[in-house]
Design a protein around this nucleic acid. Structure first.
Length: 495
DNA sequence: TTTTGAGTTGTTCGA
DNA sequence: GTCGAACAACTCAAA
């Protein structure tokens, strides 16, 4: 065994949630250093405090790592994947390849940020240079502050302040094969041995395979398709689950296959060449803004996935749901078509339209009065874009337990929402084939349809499709009463 | 310090 | 059918 000192210096790029070569500041810095570069990804399922990835995310990660391996190979960058505790794996890899510098893109949640800081200190004490760069976000979460220096708790103010700093930096090109000086190839684990993909049992990943192309090239293709057709009219169409009005870029962003900086400038270019209107581009950027805001809040409230940001919600009288109720929600058998279509889209494709996420979440929280954390956990397990910041912040937003003060009366009516945002009923018909023949007039409330219409459509309620498991009007009253219990109303002071 | 206007995404009721 | 007001009271952000 040779001592590290006898090796020629090299740089280790540690890929994490930035599985891309283009616009990757850490990678660009590694390549620019001029020393040979080698790359590593670590699958850590043992370190204390990490939230295990959900099933859909594990599937995505497996595909994304394969794709990333191919991209690295094309560029001449040695890439390996290893399983084990991050810190020990990185320290060992540094010794093995004699790395004199280690680079990575920053992570923002906990315990990741602390683990990174500790590792950086340890490496630097042993004489290894460490460079941590941004790349996941447009703005560092702690760089945007209100006038009083506190983190923002209201989106509009946050986004206004964030944008006051000017447009984001220009995106970086992917290093070319000629740029890359290949370092030593680290021995790695076979992807198939990592256990990321489901084995045995029903092939639930089939729908995911049919719906997505994970990886940097797939991300680029999704962006091109969006720029081609989706961005024009985005402001209006993004709320319509029966249209293809959204970018569907969320899982690619989640795993860093594409960066928000790239998306920002791509939308800028589309506007410049006249293929998109300012209104649509602004709306799209606003969605990037929500992602930024979620990370901003997560930095301020690291417990966002576990605790109510508004402490008064700790006393909220959640119901202990019956197993059957929860099962009906998860399987899409609540009897409310828009809710059920959403839950089945989620199960089948690993993704749900944003509008329908709000409706299904509102139904669980407000209609069934179930603790938002139960829903958050289900989404975490089943969404391919399950993001530690977005998922937790969004569920708390619907619950009203988030940092901002939500109007107490924000309770979604699943019938009205369905009629308003899926007016054709095509979204429901796509995911609830048993309702395929029901006329649009009753598609969102089949129990209101006359008996003849139901039998003509071949539907017997309670047999082919369930009756509503709760009465929404009554559930709404119950939810408002429960919310009143934790309202900030101060009882009369007895002074 | 105090004040003021606003707060992604809603629903219902009554005119 | 359409429209505007009402729906807690609170917290946030900025003036």
């Amino acid at each position: 065994m040779t001592s590290p000192g006898s090796r020629s210096p090299c740089a280790l790029i540690w890929f994490r949630e930035d599985l891309r070569l283009a616009d990757n500041p850490a990678l660009t810095a590694a390549v620019a250093s001029g020393v040979p570069v080698t790359a590593l990804f670590v699958l850590d399922e043992t370190t204390d405090g990490f939230r295990p990835l959900g099933g859909a995310s594990r599937w995505w990660l497996a595909q994304s790592l394969k794709a990333h391996g191919r991209e690295c190979a094309k560029t001449g960058l040695p890439f390996a994947v290893r399983k084990g505790p991050e810190r020990a794996v990185i320290e060992r890899a540094v010794r093995e390849c004699g790395a004199t510098r280690v680079l990575w893109s920053r992570r923002y949640g906990e315990p990741e940020a602390t683990i990174d800081a500790d590792l950086q200190r340890a490496l630097e004490e042993s004489g290894v240079a460490v460079e941590t760069l941004g790349g996941r976000l447009l703005h560092e979460p702690d760089a945007v502050r209100s006038g009083s220096g506190a983190p923002f708790k209201v989106y509009t103010a946050f986004w206004r302040a964030a944008r006051a700093g000017g447009p984001p930096r220009a995106p970086l090109p992917a290093p070319s094969r000629a740029d890359v000086v290949a370092g030593p190839q680290l021995a790695g684990d076979e992807l198939g041995d990592l256990g990321l993909e489901p084995r045995g049992g029903p092939d639930w990943a089939r729908g995911l395979r049919a719906s997505w192309t994970p990886g940097e090239a797939g991300a680029r293709a999704a962006l091109d398709a969006f720029l081609d057709g989706g961005l024009r009219g985005y402001a209006a169409a993004r709320d319509r689950p029966d249209l293809s009005g959204t970018s569907r870029l969320s899982p690619h962003l989640r795993f860093g296959e594409i960066s928000p900086v790239q998306l920002w400038h791509a939308s800028e270019a589309a506007m410049a060449e006249g293929s998109a209107q300012a209104r649509d581009v602004e709306k799209f950027r606003g969605e990037l803004g929500w992602r930024e805001f979620a990370y901003h809040l997560l930095a301020a409230f690291p417990d966002m996935a576990r605790r109510n940001a508004a402490a008064r919600f700790d006393d909220f009288p959640w119901r202990q749901p019956e197993a059957a109720e929860l099962k009906a929600w998860r399987r899409g058998l609540t009897g409310y078509p828009i809710v059920d279509a959403g839950m089945r889209q989620l199960w089948r494709t690993g993704w749900m339209h944003n509008r329908v996420r709000m409706i299904t979440a509102s139904f669980l929280i407000k209609d069934l009065l179930v603790d938002w954390r139960i829903g958050e956990a289900w989404f975490w397990d089943t969404l391919v874009d399950a993001d530690p910041a977005n998922n937790a912040v969004s569920w708390q937003w619907v619950a009203g337990s988030g940092a901002d003060a939500a109007p107490y009366f924000r309770v979604f009516n699943p019938v009205l929402q369905g009629r308003k945002f899926d007016p054709s009923g095509d979204y429901v018909r796509t995911f609830l084939p048993e309702l395929g023949e029901i006329p649009t007039k009753w598609i969102h409330a089949p129990w209101e349809a006359p008996a003849e219409a139901l039998s003509a459509a071949g539907v017997e309620l309670g047999r082919h499709y369930p009756r509503p498991i709760v009465d929404h009007a009554a559930a709404r009253k119950r939810a408002l009463a429960a919310l009143a219990q934790v309202s900030g109303r101060v009882s009369a002071p007895d002074d």
